[in-house]
Design a protein around this nucleic acid. Structure first.
Lengths: 183, 183
DNA sequence: GCAATTTGGTTGAGCGTTCAACCAGGGGTA
DNA sequence: TACCCCTGGTTGAACGCTCAACCAAATTGC
């Protein structure tokens, strides 16, 4: 990240692709968010939490499993589940085997809310994403998404690794310093 | 929107495409947001505002032009520009010909901040989006984005039109009611 | 020329996300 | 057992976005 040679600017076509892609995803997101908020009274994030729970065995998941499943921070889930709990859609249960942990359990009301929201959401996704695309484009989009995901997930891992390494190095340095002082 | 017949659920492949796409765009967005926030100390939205201003003649734009350009709400821009102004990157100027309006003007400091932020941002976009794709995939992505955008933009227009129509109808009804009372 | 509406823009409250600080319980080591 | 670090999870403040209310200037209609 140091020397920063001449940046590889985007070509005109790349720029157009990037802007269209950026605009399209932003509008799509806004559209779905609005639809869900309007018809089901919940933000997309909550919907996804309910989906994750509904697919889990016994419709229950540990908080961190839930966080991993949705690739969200623990903090975010904590807040989200708090809100969902206030709505009566999720219930927290403390974990007997590990007293630190807790389960998030989908309540019948939560399942009902999900069932109510699902058709409209799916229809919106279909209308705004799949309908305007040809089958080949859908296939291509799948491959493209997988490729980007493949690049990004290791990147996250790498970033975390680097961070860990950096901290480790720091720790080593401190240790050396300690030793030096101790000498 | 009325009768809600059996919803057209997603097939397994569609579901996989949707989930991958959803995850990919979310991670991409988070990655770019983080990069920009970390290296340039500004959220992506602000960066885009600065870009829009830098490309405008005289590096100045009316608030609503800015809003349209970024497809953002007026409110959002008002808040954003307020923040940017506090940072010294943008200056507001009242418009002499229309005393309601105001210009947002990119300051030299703002331009400098943009110049500083741009290379890292472009590099991040390239690394995480273009590098993992083949040229054909880039082309396909452009077409896909344009298709989705084409579906979504008219949809917005249609939604607005419908809303307007509904209000109009409502107004008509009220008017009729008035007339009826007046009779 | 004057009321009614529309337009350009701001403001404040409510909400969700992030970040950093924090706490308690678990696991390893001496 | 006592100590230390790690892990699972919560909390509160700061921040950006949205929505609705609002204000002032411009425009329309009679």
């Amino acid at each position: 990240m140091g020397g920063m040679s001449e940046p590889r600017w985007l070509s005109d076509e790349e720029q157009k692709v990037w802007r269209d892609f950026s605009a399209a995803t932003r509008m799509l997101q806004a559209h779905l968010e609005g639809q869900l908020q309007h018809e089901a009274g919940m933000p997309h994030t909550y919907y996804e939490v309910l989906v994750a729970l509904s697919e889990a065995p016994d419709r229950r998941l540990r908080m961190s499993e839930l966080a991993d499943a949705r690739k969200a921070s623990r903090s975010r889930l904590s807040h989200a589940v708090a809100r969902l709990e206030a709505n009566g859609w999720v219930r927290r249960e403390s974990c007997p085997t590990d007293k630190r942990g807790s389960w998030a359990v989908l309540t019948p009301e939560g399942f009902a809310a999900l069932e109510e929201a699902a058709p409209g959401h799916v229809e919106a996704v279909r209308e705004s994403l799949f309908d305007p695309l040809t089958p080949e484009q859908v296939k291509a989009l799948g491959e493209i998404s997988a490729a980007v995901l493949g690049r990004l997930s290791p990147k996250c891992a790498a970033a975390e690794a680097e961070l860990a390494l950096r901290e480790e190095t720091l720790a080593d340095l401190e240790e050396s310093a300690e030793l030096a002082k101790a000498d």
